[in-house]
Design a protein around this nucleic acid. Sequence first.
DNA 1: CAGTGGTCTAGACCACATT
DNA 2: ATGTGGTCTAGACCACTGT
Lengths: 246, 246
Amino acid sequence: MKALTGIGPLYKEVRRRLLECLAGGEWKPGERIPSEPDLARRFGVAISTIRAGISDLAAAGVVNRWQGRGTFVARHDLHPQGFRFSNIYDTRGQKVFTEREITSFQRIAADGEIARKLGLAAAGSNRVCVIEAVLRSGGIAVATMALILPARFFPRLRAATMRQTGENLYALYQKSFGVTVIRMDEWVRARKAPAALARTLGIATGDPVLEVERIAYTFGDVPVELRRRTYEATRHQYLFSHDRLA
Amino acid sequence: MKALTGIGPLYKEVRRRLLECLAGGEWKPGERIPSEPDLARRFGVAISTIRAGISDLAAAGVVNRWQGRGTFVARHDLHPQGFRFSNIYDTRGQKVFTEREITSFQRIAADGEIARKLGLAAAGSNRVCVIEAVLRSGGIAVATMALILPARFFPRLRAATMRQTGENLYALYQKSFGVTVIRMDEWVRARKAPAALARTLGIATGDPVLEVERIAYTFGDVPVELRRRTYEATRHQYLFSHDRLA
DNA sequence: CAGTGGTCTAGACCACATT
DNA sequence: ATGTGGTCTAGACCACTGT
């Protein structure tokens, strides 16, 4: 491993190189990465510089540091707060946990709006997987969901794979496709439920529903997922936390 | 200034002491704080330790560092992204800017729910200021807003003060009352507009509205503001950004 | 120019986990 | 006992800002 050659600050170069190793699969989710002295030797920089690079990744949730044990690639499964991005609550403020039932799976060409939102070239590689699902809590439908995934990031994705996947889809993206989500925007709208949706959710036509359109990004602000969920809103609310200081 | 005496890591003690100086008004919003060498001498620690403490505050947005100029107490006004917490957009994704018209101002005792959400002792100091307002964009009403503020944090707050305040209320809180908001939760709900609200917003009774209940916290997770906004939702949407890596 | 924060180094010691 | 990350130090040089 030759020395670093970047032009900017060394620790950013270190961060970039670490991300390359992660994206390239050299260290997989859940695994320990080399110790700080090892990385310092490997990159030919001081430990403090390695630590600065890793600190950024730790702050971003890409890796987790455990004193005495090592630094581990973050896994997007088994997160108590679900990567902090699963946010549906009932009206009493109790968190609602849902199961996912996949109702359809297809591979199509993205239309203009979706291609734009996912940053897909209009011409060539605009194929997407479209997965539709119903989210249920204790058997009761709480929301419908549509996932639109750029096919080039998710080769050979099959409906069966989606069905077998447990709680967190981002764990699947990371484990099976090497796609790590680091940032997302969510657009929230209030709507009146149309008849078909109302039937699915067991509410009256025209009852209020909460529409959440999420665009998730990987490194370099590349969109990797468009997720549209429509929640029953007479008995549920959505929580967003903005925290800046731990 | 005597040496630090805390039991935990030194840099956290430094952070705590810096926050004390900020909360105590020794350094006011917009002002430069002492240089890192000065602080190192003052606290009797190495510059790196000072830097570690300041880095936390900078990450939290409490201070801003400018290479060559100094470290400045963050101001909650004149923020291009409005402290990143002003989030209403039209259906085309264009940001909507609103003016605030105060319609009522009163000082009352908080009821149980509000006292609970603001962490107020049920008995004594549960007095709150309740400010109601209409938010307009180009003369068109976009939302109604109710602010509930614990009176003990905002002594002598008057309606006129609120009316004179420009864009960002958090700038007022910080400048006039020494209250710095560092974190917030937002609960989002979809509703059907009741008749009175529909009239105010110029929509039909039963049209969908977006209700956003925000609880804002200062240092130590102390709630300092309960803010309820109800947005017209046929022509507007709300944006939440979750970013973890700069 | 002097002063600021930004980066980087080399080393020390501590707290924690595993062997 | 060993190895890990966590903290802290003392110093160096760089990049940027103001005078």
